[in-house]
């Protein structure tokens, strides 16, 4: 199971049990949705604050450093790279240029200066007006950094727009991936599905098979490692045959991978059938009745506090975090 263990995202941490683990899965789901929605149409400071609050939450929750170093490390690296790349990329903004010189400047040329002295003086005065550098009205600068030669780059320009886009992309990626990862890290898969089962309860009135949907989701969460294991076994089986891919050519390589994909599908269907047999032997009732009870879904005081914090959070998002 090397492939699965090497995946840094989405794995459940069963020990130590932190206070984040103890919060009701439904409350955590509401908070996850909040973290996914709150960055939309918000200003850069709010987005940075959201990403920062996730890091702070991880530290305050007491999640061991070895766990979040692995999860957060590569994500921070990716986001930093995205930030740098987007900052120095052209901002692609179509600026409508408005000259800060008087409109007559375009008409002045040395050829026009052949008239009498009075006209010459007037023209000289106008030329002086046009050539003098106008002082900026405010300290606003659209271009924040501009160097013609910067290390290996022919020119490095950072504008307000590119910086804004860089912050948007990097913080959005971090918030979306890390909030989901933190949720999966502190919530057992069947807790998630039990929480969903409870939240989807009203759908039962419309004869929607909620338990069946939830059971299917739970089984698929168990099935993911098995799929990865099958993929890994097939990849290993191909590797051990020492195939010379260069000699094989594109067409025959594609044929080989098609055979492998066929085998993978066959193995997965066989596994699914064997699991179905095992379920029968283990006392499976029927898809819409088999509700596995394992977690008690009860809102305690800590859950109400977590829900209560949502009110000031959304007020802050509305009044402080909105776009300028």
């Amino acid at each position: 199971m090397d492939l699965l263990r090497s995946l840094p995202i989405g794995s459940y941490l069963e020990q130590p049990v932190t206070w984040l683990h103890r919060i009701d899965p439904r409350v955590k789901l509401v908070w996850l949705m909040t973290f996914l929605i709150a960055p939309l149409l918000s200003n850069p400071f709010w987005r940075i604050a959201l990403a920062g609050s996730l890091i702070l939450l991880t530290i305050v929750a007491g999640i061991p450093f070895r766990v979040w170093r692995k999860q957060m490390g590569w994500l921070l690296l990716l986001c930093t790279f995205m930030f740098l790349f987007a900052s120095i990329s052209p901002d692609s903004l179509a600026v409508k240029y408005t000259p800060r010189t008087p409109p007559f400047c375009g008409e002045i040329s040395p050829a026009n200066n052949t008239a009498n002295n009075t006209t010459k003086d007037l023209a000289a005065e106008k030329t002086a007006q046009c050539t003098s550098i106008l002082a900026p009205a405010t300290d606003y600068q659209y271009v924040l950094f501009d160097k013609p030669k910067f290390f290996l780059l022919p020119r490095l320009v950072i504008t307000r727009r590119s910086l804004d886009v860089a912050i948007r992309i990097s913080t959005l990626i971090f918030t979306l991936i890390y909030s989901t990862s933190l949720y999966l890290l502190t919530t057992a898969p069947e807790e998630i599905t039990e929480g969903l089962d409870d939240l989807m309860n009203p759908l039962r009135h419309f004869n929607i098979p909620v338990s069946e949907i939830v059971l299917t989701l739970t089984l698929s969460l168990r099935f993911i490692p098995l799929v990865l294991e099958e993929v890994q076994n097939l990849v290993r089986s191909i590797r051990t045959r020492a195939i010379d891919w260069k000699k094989l050519g594109l067409r025959r390589s594609a044929q080989l991978w098609l055979i492998v994909s066929e085998k993978l599908l066959e193995n997965l269907l066989l596994r699914a059938e064997q699991i179905a047999v095992a379920m029968d032997v283990r006392g499976f009732t029927s898809p819409n009745e088999h509700r596995v009870q394992w977690h008690q879904l009860k809102l305690r005081s800590r859950d109400w506090i977590a829900l209560g914090i949502l009110i000031p959070f959304w007020c802050a998002r509305w009044f402080v975090g909105g776009t300028f």
């Binding site: 057992a188 095992a278 283990r282 006392g283």
Partner: peptide, 28 residues
């Protein structure tokens, strides 16, 4: 029944929930 390959027998994502899987029919 215990099968040759336990990966084809254990159906829930975590240990406790998997053992609880077989107890549903007893309505405990």
């Amino acid at each position: 029944f215990v099968f040759q390959n336990p990966d084809r027998q254990l159906v829930m994502p975590t240990v406790g929930a998997d053992i609880a899987f077989g107890l549903v029919s007893e309505h405990l």
